[in-house]
Write a protein that binds this DNA or RNA. Structure first.
Lengths: 245, 245
DNA sequence: TAGTGGTCTAGACCACAGC
DNA sequence: CTGTGGTCTAGACCACTAG
């Protein structure tokens, strides 16, 4: 996609340590839960002082990639939720928080590359993708229709999951660590498919959220979610990051 | 607003140093551009080593509150833009990036408290507020209608600005440091006012963005922006934070 | 050129949690 | 109890840059 190499050429030692540990995690080499060498081990391995290692690890910890405990040592963090930035993904929790019962129904599940509207020129390079169209319901009433592509080269485990019962979103969040996400948000009038799936008149104002998730340079999944108008709000809250600790 | 005291009782020294410097900045005591004591000065003041001071300052720098230069020392950072999280605010840049000419027209400018829909119980405590309704145009065609409240107790300088020529958003971004922002995003059908302001049929799908901005516990401004349907996308991109630097 | 932040060291003590 | 991370020190050298 970009022609410049990532070019992570850390000038300083702590940056290099951080980058190398990060690479192990992002490549999947070190899975969630994997025990990372202790500060003392890394100190010896890199021939530096413990403070330098500590700076690298503290940085990774504040980024949420690792979790640290006194006696337990340092482990690769479980994939986190959307760190409170854009709290849409857990539709189920949203619905249940409103006291309604959550429902899920898969409409389609097939191998299909994402249609061109989702992608640029790199579309044909993304390999096999599983496509799931589903509807999420609140008290039996459809609230959200979701078209999702999962790229099996990046997430091979997704090939064996039964998305007839379990929505792909939560499964992905729980099993696949990601490093970057991009959202596109727009208001659209309901088209024919959407209107039928959501039981609303044609043209009803709906909220479209397209989410694309990466691990490193690899696209993991693309979700196109259309929320029934007025039924859902997106909220996003942020500030100068909890960098303190 | 909250009954628990902020209770920032930093257990560690570097956290305390960070908190105290941060307090000077957030209270407005140290304005943007203000020169912050050098690491050596702070080291003496707190009777600790320079490393400890450095940890506190590095944390503030990565949070974007201060900017550091070798010879020039450390200064309070100019208020930053939306740190690439939710890039809506600069409507003008968006429009010009599409090769269209940007236009701005103020429709209303008066002293008026925010209507109850925007606020909870604390609404009556917010003091004087300036209300500006404006339209932003792309090639003479309205794209966005904005209702904005600016709370003059929090932003007294805003009382003297001529928002007939300059939109309040960019002015605020450039002059007022904020610490937290919350967005509510929804799809709505255009009501009568909106339809007229945007020259669209009643009921057209529009994108509503409500943004509320704080400095500490103090609300600075509330903006309610309605974008003409299909004319604008919101994009949000993020990952595990660029904590490295 | 002088002063600043950026980095690093080789120690140290402590708090905590698993054994 | 023991090993781990969290913190802190009292130095040091270097790179950058404003004056």
């Amino acid at each position: 996609m970009h022609d410049h190499t990532p070019d992570t050429r850390p000038a300083t030692l702590h940056a290099r340590i951080r980058a190398e540990v990060e690479a192990h995690i992002l490549s999947g080499d070190w899975k969630p839960g994997h025990r990372i060498p202790t500060e003392t081990e890394l100190m010896l391995r890199y021939g530096c002082s413990r403070m330098t290692v500590n700076k690298a690890m503290a940085s990774l910890a504040s980024a949420g990639l690792i979790s640290r405990n006194r006696r337990a040592g340092t482990t690769v963090a479980r994939p986190r939720l959307h760190s409170a930035v854009l709290n849409i993904p857990d539709v189920r929790a949203e619905i249940e928080a409103r006291g309604e019962t959550y429902g899920y129904r898969a409409l389609l599940d097939e191998m299909r590359p994402p249609c061109c509207i989702h992608l640029g020129a790199e579309g044909h390079q993304m390999g096999r993708s599983r496509f799931i169209r589903s509807v999420h319901l609140a008290d039996e009433s459809p609230i959200l229709v979701e078209d999702r592509h999962i790229f099996l080269d990046a997430v091979p485990a997704a090939a064996d999951v039964d998305f007839g019962q379990e929505p792909p979103g939560p499964w992905l969040l729980g099993h696949v660590p990601w490093t970057e996400a991009e959202h596109r948000i727009a208001a659209i009038p309901a088209d024919a498919m959407t209107a039928r799936a959501l039981s609303v008149p044609l043209g009803t104002a709906c909220l479209l959220v397209e989410r694309r998730t990466w691990r490193g340079a690899e696209t993991l999944t693309i979700a196109r979610q259309v929320f029934r108008g007025e039924a859902f709000d997106l909220t996003a809250r942020f500030g100068p990051s909890p960098t303190g600790g």
